[in-house]
């Protein structure tokens, strides 16, 4: 056998394999002209946004993190209600990868919720529950004893606590992605997103529907649901994800009945603050009846996740 020939072939093979790791095809998109319509139906447009996805490009679907979800609930003026959160005692019941991943997201959302409302003891307890889930999934060093100690030492410093929660979530999701466990990372995100939706719908149920800012936040989740579905479909070869797609599809059927209309966005830059405001108006047709249907479906799905 000709060794030199083998060397060349091997080097070629090496080059091809390396290329497979790095090369994604290039596409270009020119700046489009603004469309003349004043209002657009987001239901159709959201699908259009995904239509020209080039399969070979690197695509990210970003769901609101548990921390952002909790912040959105708080900024809508909602009150803290410990009864809505998943009991930390349930942590021992989660033994499958799917249940641990879902509840890592759920407990991280509860941890964020408790932290934002300065619920110190609850924050520590939920960090412990999240640690149990992360350990069960074999996520190394995302949440260690030092993290808990750090949380305890800074328990009255909300900003620092936010940093700790954000850091632990980054470590967990980065670990899963780095170790080719993107499906589990997607399940974690869906768990956190569903917990936020559950807390928000239950809080509306305990208050009033009219002029409730949380209702707007719940309607907004129709936009994130499109991303939830894309994220799950990307990982649908995983049986746990495939099951989750079926469950979330039932929720999507209800969200599909909600229509959101939005005006054309006009970006206005403020040179003093260097902040751009994306000016636009939107409205939806969510009725109290449809909201009840939605909140019942959310409750039933979330309860299957925490059982």
């Amino acid at each position: 056998m000709n060794i030199k020939w083998i060397k060349i072939k091997s080097l070629k093979l090496l080059a091809i394999l390396f290329s497979a790791f790095f090369i994604a095809s290039c596409g270009s998109g020119g700046d489009k002209q603004r469309e003349p319509e004043i209002t657009v139906d987001m239901t159709e447009i959201d699908q259009e946004l995904f239509e020209d996805i080039d399969e070979a490009k690197k695509i990210f679907y970003s769901l609101p993190s548990p921390l952002e979800t909790a912040m959105l609930i708080r900024s809508a003026g909602a009150q803290y209600d410990a009864e809505l959160l998943n009991s930390v005692d349930n942590a021992q019941n989660y033994t499958t990868n799917k249940s641990m991943a879902l509840n890592l997201g759920i407990y991280t959302c509860d941890l964020s919720f408790a932290s934002l409302y300065d619920q110190t003891q609850a924050s520590i307890s939920y960090m412990g529950a999240a640690k149990k889930m992360a350990d069960g999934l074999g996520i190394l060093d995302a949440i260690d004893e030092k993290t808990i100690e750090n949380l305890e030492e800074n328990i009255n410093n909300r900003e620092k606590i936010m940093d700790i929660v954000s850091e632990t979530f980054l470590n967990s999701s980065a670990f899963l992605k780095e170790n080719d466990r993107a499906a589990l990372s997607a399940i974690v995100l869906v768990g956190g997103w569903m917990e936020g939706l559950y807390i928000a719908t239950e809080l509306v149920n305990r208050g009033t529907f009219e002029d409730n800012k949380l209702v707007i936040r719940i309607v907004d989740q129709k936009l994130s649901l499109e991303i939830v579905m894309k994220l799950l479909e990307e990982n649908q070869s995983n049986p746990d994800v495939a099951g989750l797609i079926e469950e979330i599809s039932e929720l999507k059927a209800i969200f599909d009945q909600i229509k959101i209309e939005t005006s054309v966005i006009e970006p206005v830059h403020d040179p003093e603050t260097n902040v751009t405001t994306l000016k636009s108006k939107s409205q939806s047709n969510l009725t109290p009846e449809l909201f009840i249907e939605l909140s019942e479906k959310v409750r039933s799905l979330r309860n299957t996740f925490v059982l």
Binding site: K57, S62, S65, E68, E167
Partner: peptide, 18 residues
């Protein structure tokens, strides 16, 4: 926000995030 999105890209390549 705690989310992590990073990838190795080469000159001429693109990535998209939704």
């Amino acid at each position: 926000d705690g989310n992590y999105h990073a990838a190795i890209l080469t000159e001429g390549e693109e990535a998209e995030l939704y």
